[in-house]
Each structure stands twice: as C-alpha cells, then as structure tokens.
Design a protein around this nucleic acid. Structure first.
Length: 446
DNA sequence: TCTGGGGTCCTAGGACCC
DNA sequence: TCTGGGGTCCTAGGACCC
C-alpha cells in the first residue's frame, strides 16, 4: 500500500470571483460580497483584501472606504455560487478517482498511489489549468500526506505567489519549514479560543504544536486537538469522506430585513422557515420528530429591551409533511411569543430523524400522524401526504414558490414601496442576475 | 439606521438505574 | 452518626468549520 496522499483544491475568493466572472468591467476593481440581509462582508476580491477590508466586518463600518476606493458591492447570490461550485466539482470528479466535496468552494482529492504516473506538483498545475479553462475560476492546490497538512499546503499556495498556486508538502523537511512560519491559530481545527490557550502554554507556531506531546495535549484539550497534532506529524487520522453523511439536524433561520413586532408577521416568517425546512427534510429522505422554534431581539442593540427564547416540541409520529411541521411550529411559537419587543431574528430547527418505515411508535402512541391534538383525530393518510408533498416539490422546482402555504403570507405592496415584498423578508439591495440558472438573465454579447 | 446562516463534534454534569 | 460505584442517557454549552 502506498502512503496516503491528499490534495486540497480551494477556489480563490470564490464568491467574489463568481461575481467578477460575469462583469469583465470590474476586472481590476475591488469588490466585496455581503452576507444575507447585506449585513457583513463574507468575501473580498484580491483588490479589496489589499485595501485591508476585513472578513466579517459589518458593512456600515466601512462606508467610508467603500466610497473612497469605489468598491463594488454585491448581495449574496447563492443560486449563482452553487451553480458555479457544481461546475468546479464536476470537473474535479473527472480528474481524480475519489473526491470529497468539503464546502461550496473546497474539495479534498485522494491522490494515493498516483505518484508513479504523475508528480504531485504537475498534477496540481494541471488541475489549476483545467478548472481555469473550463469554469473561469482560479484555484490553489495543496498536497500532503494528511488532510491537515494539505490544508496548510493550500494556505501556503495562496499566500506565496512564488508557488504558482501549488504546494506539495510530501517532503517532511518542507512540512517543518512551512509549519515554523504558520501561527498556531491558523492550523485547521484550531480557532481563536484554542489558539489563545495554546499560546499561553508557549505553543505559538504550527511547528510548536506538531512537537507537543499528543498525550499531554489530550489531557489539556480534547481528542480533537490530539488528532490535529498527529496529523501535523504526517499520521493520517481524518479520512476522505466521499458520500456526505446524512444530516442529523436541519436549521432554517434568518435575520429580518426590518424588525418584526407583530405576532402575525412572526407567524409568516416561522411558517416560511418551516416550509423550507420541510423541503430540505424531504430532499434528505428523512422524517423528523423534534422541532425547535426560536425568536430573538438584536443582541447588538443594548438600549432596546432584550428577549430571546426557544422551545422544543415533538410530533406524535415523525413526519416530512409541511403541514405537520407548520402546525407544531405555530403552536410552539405561541408559547414563547411576547408582545412589546422588536424581533431581529427567528428560526426553526428539526432533529431526531428517521428513515421511512423505521420508526417504532411506543406502546401508547397513536400510530398515524396527526396534525394537531386538539383537532378531531383525523390522521393523514401517508400515501396522500406523500403524493401531495412530491407534487408540491415538483412544481416549486420549476419556479421558486409557485405554490405556497397561506401562512407564509402574501406579498404586500407596502404603500410607499413599489417592490411589494414582505417587510420582514431579507434585504438584498445589490443582487446580481442569475446568469447561469435563468434564461432571462443570461449574458448578452452585443 | 446598519452586525449571516448552517452545520458538526466533544465534554461536563445531572438524572437515573442497579 | 454512617451514606458506593459504575454505567447509561440526555442536555447544554463550548469549540470549531466554511
């Protein structure tokens, strides 16, 4: 058996690159992509990074820089990014036997045993070129015997232009040299908190961490950090996962575009989240038993009265029917709703999942799903429910929200605004067109 | 005025059982 | 007065990732 070899392929400034791809006029201009609700910066082009714009900074804090440097703003356009990501990932799957799609802009490749056919760095360059030619996206490639080291190699490839975007860390001496340069809190798996605690113990660089005693680290921290130490020493502990593990939890939540103060609006929002969560659940082919609903005011607004609460409830029988989820979510919301607050965010969480036909009802439970215990016991007929939900999903796949539940609320044309959106809906004032997924938005060359 | 969303894993501590 | 020990399950909270 050959030693394991991993490549980490990571797209450069992914969201920003996607936006620039369709706007050649912005080629050398700094641009930033904003989070949902146009709240903070989640991606920056290299020009924006060079200006010192930090990741995660709220947009209102950099108004001045935006004007001064003529920075172009974009609302998050996940439809576009997801489609571009799929193109990159499909290309990678052509280039390697085993691929783990790790996030929207990163993938691990298994290169074990390929070295006799093609050297790691030549392979890395090939990946860069093909992805660039076929999708227009620039990637960097890090190659090493463990995932943690491959992450670090990728980091190096991004940071040092001399590497031409590819770093091969197969050689232990090269590993040591790079580790000595990398602050410990930039190691994969070490965040700010752990970084601070490690530094207090005199562990400042990745190399210091690699040289620490794993048993000692385990005592002071956890098995997770111990594993990181081993990985830094070339011992592969984290395997490639080709198939995404099935979800254990589904969360749908949003901050509101405008603060919500009435129960009616909150009902609409929670209903909407329930519908989205149910769609995700059906996509996973799972049935949920536990629902958690939460609402909260803005923790950033110290002057306003604060309130935050959440509540869990169980369906009598696991369900994937939007109507069951909505019903329970509405009842849970009633329990925690308090008048007199300006709510900033709300959401719903599904958990305790079952596969079809697996659930064992306990002795005293009703066997058939029921929507609401206060209503007469009319149970859903599973077949009808399934047919209805799959029809609903099918229609909504053709066009977003063609069919919706009354509880989600209908678009109000609020007097002074012509947009006709719900007041609580998310703010997206700088949204780019759906270039790759909507015929009407396709780019025209004149 | 204005601060994202969606996940996972681990651990400690309490409840409960024998 | 004296008051075990070990196991399991659950939950909350902390930490991380992108």
């Amino acid at each position: 058996m050959s030693d394991p070899t991993f490549a980490l392929v990571d797209c450069n400034n992914f969201y920003a690159s996607c936006e620039k791809l369709f706007r050649p006029d912005l080629k050398d201009r700094p641009i930033v992509v904003l989070s949902n609700n146009d709240g903070c910066v989640v991606a920056r082009s290299k020009e924006a990074k060079a200006l010192g714009i930090k990741m995660g900074v709220p947009i209102f804090k950099i108004r001045h820089e935006i004007r001064q440097h003529n920075i172009a703003l974009f609302s998050s356009n996940y439809t576009l990014y997801a489609d571009m990501s799929a193109r990159v990932m499909r290309t990678l799957e052509d280039l390697a036997q085993r691929v783990e799609i790790y996030s929207i802009d990163e993938a691990f490749l298994d290169l074990t045993g390929t070295q006799s056919l093609i050297s790691n760095s030549v392979f890395g360059q090939k990946v860069r070129q093909i992805i660039g030619d076929w999708t227009g996206i620039t990637v960097c490639v890090g190659i090493a015997p463990t995932k943690t080291l491959a992450k670090m190699a990728n980091h190096g490839a991004k940071k040092y232009p001399g590497t031409q975007g590819v770093v091969d860390l197969s050689d232990p001496q090269r590993q040591q040299r790079l580790m000595a340069l990398l602050p410990v809190d930039e190691v994969w798996g070490i965040g700010r908190r752990l970084g601070l605690r490690l530094q207090q113990m005199g562990i400042n660089s990745a190399l210091d961490l690699a040289n620490a005693n794993p048993k000692h680290i385990r005592q002071h921290f956890s098995v997770v950090v111990e594993r990181t130490v081993r990985e830094l020493n070339g011992e592969s502990c984290i395997e490639l996962e080709e198939a995404p593990p099935t979800k254990k939890q589904i969360v749908c939540s949003r901050s509101f575009g405008e603060r919500v103060t009435t129960l009616q609006e909150m009902r609409e929002a929670i209903c909407q989240h329930s519908v989205r969560a149910a769609e995700k659940l059906r996509k996973e082919k799972r049935y949920a038993k536990v629902i958690n609903v939460f609402i909260r005011t803005s923790p950033f607004n110290a002057q306003q009265p604060q309130y935050s609460n959440s509540i869990s409830g169980e369906l009598s029988v696991p369900s994937d029917d939007s109507r069951d989820l909505i019903n329970l979510a509405m009842r849970l919301l009633e329990c925690i709703w308090r008048d007199g607050y300006a709510y900033a965010k709300a959401g719903i969480m599904l958990s305790d999942f079952y596969e079809a036909g697996i659930y064992q009802p306990s002795l005293f439970e009703q066997e058939a799903p029921q929507s609401n215990s206060r209503e007469p016991k009319k149970s859903r007929e599973p077949k009808k429910s399934q047919a209805l939900m799959s029809t609903l999903d099918k229609i909504n796949r053709q066009g977003k929200n063609k069919l919706f539940f009354a509880g989600q609320g209908i678009n109000k044309s609020s007097g002074n605004k012509s947009s006709g959106t719900k007041n609580w809906a998310m703010k997206r004032e700088h949204l780019s067109p759906a270039y790759t997924t909507n015929w009407n938005d396709i780019l025209k060359v004149k």
